[in-house]
């Protein structure tokens, strides 16, 4: 397979996953921000959202102080934000279009139709800013698009290197997203969680779960109220939770091994991914909290970034 094709597939999947993540953050933040301040409607909600989306710096460069309406617009529509939903869908499609022949017709049609839908909303928004109902519909659309692309790829693509590279993109992005949202939320909430248990925390913590679509999963696994350390456990160490760091790394290792087997050669990407996976497998929550959650997550985000680089070096560049 062409290196460029693998690169496009990897990024196609990454952008679709990111579009989904940004839509989820925007959705939960919108819910939180609409709560009365006593129940968790903190003023810095949108700042946290921008930060989790990795968009705080570009936002501040453009707008300065954080304002809810501007933040929504920046996360969803702004062309100057490389990770805005419209940019993610646009870049996802550009990557998909460059490798149409490596995608199934179903997957291509899904992304192409979603892109057309997005363009329509974008034009509409440019003429007259969307109202809340339309914004929610757009976020739902973005999440559904990611789901449909994922599902059509899963159902129709040959299990060969094209599929594996796209899956790698998806899981590297997902691991990054989960780690980021956990990090940001913990940072904001920690000073106030010394007295854990108020309704304020409840909504805040619930919002993280919602952002990674894990509200129901949480209750199935723990059968108790929402507790910060259990949320961290769920999102870091629970292999049955599909967005947990450990689950992502299980998949990354699996797909990198599939590639190595097919090509008959292991490399730095495989080695590094296995190291990170092993680290997660041997970790306990107690240990994570002793080192400090923020330190743990920062190191993870760094590792994950470097594994992305190792994959690029080994396969995507010449």
């Amino acid at each position: 397979m062409l290196s460029r094709t693998a690169d496009n597939l990897f990024w196609f999947a990454r952008y679709m996953e990111r579009a989904d993540f940004i839509a989820r953050i925007a959705n939960t933040t919108r819910r939180l921000a609409s709560l009365p301040s006593g129940d968790g409607g903190a003023a810095n909600e949108w700042e946290a959202a921008l930060s989790a989306a990795g968009a705080l710096e570009p936002y501040e460069a453009v707008h300065g102080a954080v304002d809810p309406d501007k933040a929504v617009d920046f996360l969803l529509f702004d062309a100057r934000n490389p990770s805005s939903i419209v940019n993610c869908i646009e870049s996802g499609r550009v990557n998909a279009r460059a490798v149409r022949t490596a995608l199934t017709i179903e997957t291509w049609e899904t992304i192409n139709a979603g892109w057309q839908e997005m363009k329509k909303v974008q034009r509409q928004h440019a003429q007259k800013p969307l109202d809340t109902e339309e914004l929610v519909a757009f976020l739902d659309m973005a999440m559904k698009l990611a789901l449909d692309v994922d599902g059509s790829a899963y159902r129709t693509m040959l299990r060969n290197d094209a599929y594996w590279f796209s899956r790698l993109g998806l899981y590297v992005e997902r691991a990054d997203n989960t780690a980021r949202i956990l990090d940001v939320k913990y940072n904001i909430l920690l000073p106030e969680t010394e007295a854990v248990g108020g309704s304020l925390d409840y909504f805040q913590w619930n919002a993280i779960l919602r952002a990674v679509s894990a509200v129901t999963s949480y209750h199935w696994i723990y059968r108790e109220g929402v507790k910060p350390w259990l949320i961290a456990d769920l999102l870091i160490l629970r292999p049955e939770m599909p967005r947990s760091l450990i689950a992502c790394y299980g998949e990354i290792v699996r797909f990198l091994d599939a590639i190595a087997n097919a090509y008959g050669r292991q490399g730095a990407a495989q080695r590094r991914a296995r190291q990170t996976y092993t680290k997660l497998q041997n970790a306990t929550m107690k240990q994570v909290f002793t080192t400090g959650l923020h330190e743990f997550l920062t190191e993870f985000i760094e590792d994950n970034y470097e594994i992305g680089g190792a994959i690029a070096e080994q396969y995507l560049l010449d």
Partner: peptide
Amino acid sequence: VELVEGRDLLVRDGFVYMRTTQ
């Protein structure tokens, strides 16, 4: 067959090659 762009191809020692994942 592969759909290539110019940057996917290179010339070495009198032949044309494409850059692949292998």
